[in-house]
Simulated scan of single mutants.
Amino acid sequence: MQTNILLIYTGGTIGMVKDFDTGALRAFNFDKLLKRIPELSHLNCNINTVSFENPIDSSNMNPGYWVQIVEIIEENYEDYDGFVVLHGSDTMSYTASALSFMLENLAKPVIFTGSQLPIGDLRTDAKENLITSIEIASLKKNNKPVIREVCLYFEYKLYRANRTTKINAEHFQAFASLNYPPLAESGVHLKVNHEYLLKPTRKKLKVHKNMEANIALVKLFPGINEATISCLLLNPATEAVILESYGAGNAPTEKWFEEVLKKAVNSGKIIINVTQCSGGSVLMGQYETSSHLKKIGLINGKDITTEAAVAKLLYLLGNNIQRKVFKTIYETSLRGEMV
Rank of each mutant, 00 (worst) to 15 (best):
N62F: 10
D79S: 14
Q276D: 06
N250Q: 13
L130D: 13
V84Y: 08
S51C: 09
N4R: 13
I37R: 00
N62W: 08
A227Y: 05
G11T: 07
H194I: 14
N105P: 03
L283T: 13
N29I: 11
D125S: 08
N48V: 05
R323A: 07
K263W: 01
K108V: 00
K203M: 04
N4T: 02
A169L: 13
Q68M: 12
L197R: 01
K262M: 12
E258G: 04
V325I: 15
V325D: 13
E39N: 15
Y9N: 10
K294G: 02
A98N: 07
Y94F: 14
I5E: 00
S93P: 09
S245Q: 11
N76R: 06
T228Y: 15
I111M: 12
Y65L: 15
A174K: 12
S93Q: 10
V50E: 03
T165G: 04
F30A: 00
L198Q: 03
L7S: 02
I131E: 06
L40T: 03
Q2A: 05
L122Q: 09
G114M: 05
K157Y: 06
T164S: 11
A251C: 15
E170T: 14
L232C: 00
K203C: 00
S41L: 08
N193E: 05
M16A: 08
S281Q: 13
P145V: 07
I270G: 03
F83H: 05
T95R: 07
A176L: 06
T253N: 10
P145F: 05
D125N: 11
Y180Q: 01
V50C: 11
T49S: 15
A251F: 15
I271P: 01
K324F: 09
E244F: 00
N4W: 02
T95Q: 10
M102I: 04
K302F: 07
K294I: 07
I14M: 11
L158G: 14
G285I: 04
V188F: 12
I224W: 02
L86T: 05
L217P: 01
V218P: 03
P38G: 03
S267P: 10
D303W: 00
Y287I: 01
L314Q: 14
N193D: 03
N142W: 07
T289R: 05
G247T: 08
H189A: 01
M284H: 12
N319Q: 15
K191C: 11
